[in-house]
């Protein structure tokens, strides 16, 4: 389905597509646009990616630019750093964010530090795509939401799209950025559909949040899967509580202005993110708002996330720990 919608910059053509298709479209467009862009990761080629994101890209771009790697995260992550330092733009897929544990050395000590350590004399245009989140019975080593680590760690930009459009726009910005960017994709929303701009120059600046629904009574700042959950809830509460929903989109840098502006209007804040609650993304959002809109807050900030446990296997346990719309609703009810 193609539709004409109007935006600030004039009419823009959009098409409804899944999160997965939006990512693939971004990859395709950027590889067509810039021949220095190439992809590598485990099974990203003929197999099409374990979550079928890369799909048939290898057929169009060949095995040189869509490279299946050995199961050597440290090796190919390091190769991406070396390739980026010498003039290419690698897009690396780390199949599950949990596997970053295997190659964190190259991310933390090389990719994130080289530019600074070398006095700004090198660029590091690496994009890492990786999957987070529980919900498919994959247990603790394939379900983690780890993005706080990299939003915290200097030298890396971190984004976490909550809609197909933001998935496309953020990934394109990541690939075009001369800085290392990690794109954290929640694996449970690859089938989620939304309108996505077809303009090849459509990007979403890294460091920009998006007000997905305007409201008056409470601000819900959400990421990834929790954006959809929160929008659905806002719809249900319509006429009863007016909920403003913001897709944070970018974890670092963080769009403090958009958050503050919203809370100045609503006076109440709920933060919904699937990462563990302590020392986390929630805390950073809350602090930014507290620092800049302390006297606008009418009630304590509420956090919705995962208690400080790993994601368990049994559906009964997994569903217990994962947040959803009902948790956001409970949080709203505590303060509105």
């Amino acid at each position: 389905m193609s539709t004409e919608t109007s935006s600030g910059s004039g009419p823009a053509q959009t098409e409804e597509m899944t999160f997965r298709e939006a990512i693939r479209l971004a990859l395709r467009e950027e590889m067509e646009r810039d021949e220095d862009v190439f992809m590598m990761g485990e099974d990203v080629g003929k197999f099409g990616g374990v979550f079928e994101v890369t799909g048939d890209l290898v057929e169009d771009f060949g095995e040189t630019r869509v490279r299946d790697t050995p199961i050597s995260e440290a090796g190919f992550m390091g190769a991406a750093v070396g390739a980026a330092a010498t003039g290419t733009r690698p897009v690396v897929e780390i199949m599950f964010a949990d596997f970053i544990g295997v190659c964190s050395e190259q991310i933390i000590n090389q990719m994130a530090k080289n530019r600074y350590m070398f006095g700004g004399k090198t660029e590091m245009p690496v994009t890492i795509r990786t999957t987070e989140g529980g919900g498919m019975g994959a247990a603790s080593q394939h379900s983690g939401t780890l993005h706080t680590w990299f939003a915290h760690f200097p030298g890396v930009l971190a984004v976490a799209p909550g809609s197909p459009a933001s998935a496309k726009g953020l990934l394109k910005s990541a690939i075009r950025s001369n800085d290392p960017v990690i794109v954290f994709e929640n694996k449970m929303i690859y089938e989620q559909k939304g309108e996505v701009p077809l303009d090849e120059d459509f990007t979403i600046p890294i460091g920009q949040a998006s007000v997905e629904r305007e409201g008056e009574d409470v601000t819900v700042v959400a990421t990834q899967r929790m954006v959809g959950e929160s929008l659905e809830l806002a719809e249900q509460l319509d006429g009863q509580t007016s909920v403003e929903v913001i897709d944070l989109q970018s974890l670092y840098p963080l769009d403090t202005d958009t958050l503050v502006e919203s809370v100045k209007k609503t006076g109440r804040l709920v933060i919904a993110d699937e990462s563990p609650l302590s020392y986390g993304t929630h805390a950073e959002v809350a602090t930014r708002v507290m620092e800049n809109a302390f006297f606008s807050l009418d009630a304590p900030v509420q956090r919705v996330g995962v208690a400080d446990v790993h994601i368990p296997f049994s559906p009964a346990l997994e569903q217990e720990v994962l947040p959803d719309g009902s948790d956001v609703e409970a949080a709203i009810n505590r303060i509105v």
Binding site: T64, G75, G78, A79, V81, G82, A83, A84, G87, N109
Partner: peptide
């Protein structure tokens, strides 16, 4: 490089650039 063993993956990447370009 302050990390023992971190250089060879970078060299592999620089060699990959040579092939890609």
């Amino acid at each position: 490089n302050g990390i023992v063993g971190a250089g060879p993956p970078l060299a592999t990447g620089a060699a990959l650039t040579s092939v890609l370009k």
